[in-house]
Design a protein around this nucleic acid. Structure first.
Length: 464
RNA sequence: GCUUCCUUAGCUCAGUCGGUUAGAGCAUCUGACUGUUAAUCAGAGGGUCCCUGGUUCGAGCCCAGGAGGGAGCGCCA
């Protein structure tokens, strides 16, 4: 009775056989005959199941009947070397307790595969599948690696606000946050909703980026990063966008664009290497089930330098490309997905860092180049994902920044505190944003971003 | 928001030219089998053909509108 519960992962790795063990988990399958039953139990600690062997005569028929796919069980027994092929150890059961039944007639998950679209409709149960177990363990490993990486290199984790009072971050449509009543909200003299009456005394939104606040911290702590949820109310309907996603935004004082690129490349390689080291079984499963080139592609990322070139050079390459594009390439316009894909997947066949974009297609805070036409921006483009990182050296000169804000109609009044960073002790600094789900998408080889976050938020969908 | 495809059993799908009682595999249930590995074998049950309206003697199939989903594009991370 004093046996403590072991994880499936620990038991499968155990060298210590013929001892009493206790395992608790969810039944994946049961098969067998009237003499012997085989129950595959998974507790989430690993993608692998533990095989429980039950001599049918020892257990009441009702108990075994309840040991159905999806049921939760506690099994006590002896850990023994397996007589069958396919696993090295198994449990010879002495006690089976069904902690939670799962009616086979109505339990939606089967032991056979389901489409990812169907699983999206049962997001509360899909973590129990091999696929989502693997994705969620990888997601955790990558999140942990983010903190590990920055902590080891002297970065400080700063918590930037989720509710923001400025709507000028320039990164997209925002979700309004309000406690005003839906019916008959207070109106101002112009007949518009009067947000002076609102909870914060002004209009507030969910953040689209922690960058501006990150810069505040970098101008004091030197090297910082944020890692938190961000929100975009864009009506984006693609496999690469979410309305709620997690973003990692490092911001470093005294880093120029070159340093920024170096950090981005080293960081991405570290994360991929970490996943390969910590989650080999999960990655092997995803490789076998979804994407036969996944492991090779991950290794390739680690082993090769990213191709660095300027926007202008990229435009030259695209113009002389034999391939016909749906959209024409012209200096001054932003590259289309097809152009980025050509560069990454056809021309260079490796990750690409594009720099020095025309100023008119980039954000107001990016540092102007000497020529006055381009800015010190960098986008990291990955195969299959497109833009995984967007970053830049920031404009540290007050007058130039104010000039850019005027040109791009960014209200100075709202960002007075941001301008103060340039008024008092300004310093060259750089940073970037990494969409966490795009990273998970790349590392897992999944095709749709909605399948790499437990509860995806996207237009017309906030179930669960 | 745009383009395009899809919606038939719990799941994945087939359904011919518009024609009688809508099919398959898997899952489920029942039975067989003394070590299974997405077990195997035999049998059974299971349908609002997405919704609304229309055309027609007759609609799963044709038409219109709506809803939901996928892929691609745009916006971006």
């Amino acid at each position: 009775m004093s046996v403590r519960r072991s994880s499936v992962e620990a038991l499968l790795a155990s060298q210590e056989l013929d001892r009493e063990v206790l395992v608790k988990g969810w039944v994946r399958t049961r098969r067998g005959n009237k003499y012997v039953q085989f129950i595959a139990v998974n507790d989430g600690s690993t993608i692998n199941n533990l095989q429980v062997v039950a001599d049918a005569e020892k257990f009441p028929e009702e108990t075994l009947k309840d040991v159905a796919t999806g049921a939760c069980v506690a099994v006590r027994g002896t850990l023994v070397a397996s007589q069958g092929k396919g696993q090295s150890v198994e449990i010879q059961a002495s006690e089976i307790e069904v902690l939670g039944k799962a009616d086979p007639e109505t339990y939606p998950l089967q032991k056979k595969g389901h489409s990812l679209e169907f699983l999206r409709e049962i997001a509360h149960l899909r973590p129990r599948t091999n696929t989502f177990g693997a994705v969620l363990r990888l997601r955790h490993a990558l999140a942990f690696a983010v903190h590990q990486y920055f902590n080891d290199r002297g970065f400080f984790y700063v918590h930037t606000p989720i509710i923001t009072g400025s709507d000028a971050e320039g990164a997209g449509q925002m979700f309004r946050v309000t406690t005003l009543p839906d019916q008959n909200p207070p109106l101002n003299e112009q007949g518009q909703v009067d947000y002076k009456e609102d909870f914060f005394g002004k209009a507030t939104n969910l953040t689209v980026s922690g960058q501006l606040e990150g810069e505040v911290a970098a101008m004091a702590l030197g090297k910082v990063y944020t890692f938190g949820p961000t929100f975009r109310a864009e009506n984006s309907n693609t496999a690469r966008h979410l309305a709620e996603f997690w973003m990692i935004e490092p911001e470093m004082a005294f880093y120029e664009l070159e340093d920024n690129m170096g950090l981005a490349e080293d960081f991405l390689k570290y994360l991929v290497r970490y996943a390969l080291e910590k989650c080999p079984a999960d990655l092997q499963f995803l490789n076998d089930q979804y994407d036969k080139e996944l492991l090779g592609r991950l290794q390739f990322i680690i082993d090769n330098d990213f191709q660095r070139l300027t926007y202008t050079e990229a435009v030259e390459i695209l113009k002389s490309a034999k391939q016909k594009f749906e959209f024409p390439v012209d200096w001054g316009t932003d590259l289309q997905s097809e152009h980025e894909r050509y560069l990454v997947e056809k021309h260079f066949e490796k990750p690409v860092i594009l720099t020095n974009y025309p100023k008119d297609i980039k954000a107001f805070y990016m540092k102007l180049d000497e020529d006055g036409r381009t800015v010190r921006a960098m986008d990291v483009l990955f195969p299959g994902i497109g833009e995984i990182i967007g970053g830049s050296q920031r404009e540290e000169n007050l007058e130039k920044l104010q000039q850019r804000m005027q040109e791009m109609h960014v209200p100075e009044e709202e960002l007075w505190w941001y301008l103060d960073l340039r008024r008092f002790g300004s310093a060259p600094h750089s940073g970037f944003g990494l969409g966490f789900e795009r990273l998970v998408l790349f590392v897992t080889g999944m095709a749709n971003i909605r399948d790499v976050i437990p509860f995806p938020r996207f237009p017309k969908n906030a179930e669960f």
